[in-house]
Amino acid sequence: MNNMTLYVNRDSPVHRVDPLTKLLFVFISITSTYISANHLAVFGILLFTFIILMTGNVFKSILPVIGVSFLLIASIIIVQGFFHPDRATVLFEIGPIAIYKEGFSIALLITLRVVNMVAAFGVLILTTKPDDLVEALLQKGLSPKFGYVLLSVLQIIPQMVALTGKITDAQRARGMETEGGIWMRFKSFLPLLGPVVLNSLTETRERSIALEIRGFNAKGNRTFLYERETYRYSMPLRIALIIFFLAVIVWRVMS
């Protein structure tokens, strides 16, 4: 597992859109669903997000990501459906328990919003290489040091995860149990996490040195190995997104 991102390598029109425009899309798509309280409008936005995912040829990949949030969604439907404070009209009854129309309606709205949130981020995450996004932000003036931080996280976590097997072996070889009662298991937590923490913190010293050697703190202008190709339609796309966003706000204020 050398790459922990969810990026799906395809060639599609969505993949070619520049990362910042996609970032703007994510923001507008999500906030619009929260500004508008109309089921149909929110559903429309969700549908639009799905269409983009399909155009990007990554619709299938979003399903497991939505699945991760399943517990949250289920909990919303159950809890709000049964217990929302505005409950008044009984929709239907299962045995002694009543599902209320108001709660159910709200639960449905929130579910649409959550799914749209996940799907909208999906547009960015599934079709954008993280390093492209960071490069784009760098050229917009993000400090290269923060750029370093963002990218190195993606590389370093898999390296740390790869250590876990070795550590578990080493501690089991010293008679540590990973199964048993809760206290027994809890006692094993530090022997397992401790070596990773100490290693990675001690290693920060060497890696700092390595970065210093490579001019991490060099003053003066830095250059970039690759030239960014400019995306032709980013301006019109961004303008369209902003017009849509303004329309949502106006509509909400008017109604």
Binding site: V149, T164, V196, S200, L201, R205, L211
Partner: peptide
């Protein structure tokens, strides 16, 4: 400092592994 910048990814990794081990040990 450079050390602080290098600390950030390491710390994120530690968060990640803490969660991982908590899962493994079913805490």
């Amino acid at each position: 400092s450079t050390a602080a910048f290098v600390l950030i990814p390491a710390a994120v990794g530690i968060n990640f592994l803490g969660k991982l081990f908590a899962d493994v040990l079913k805490l």
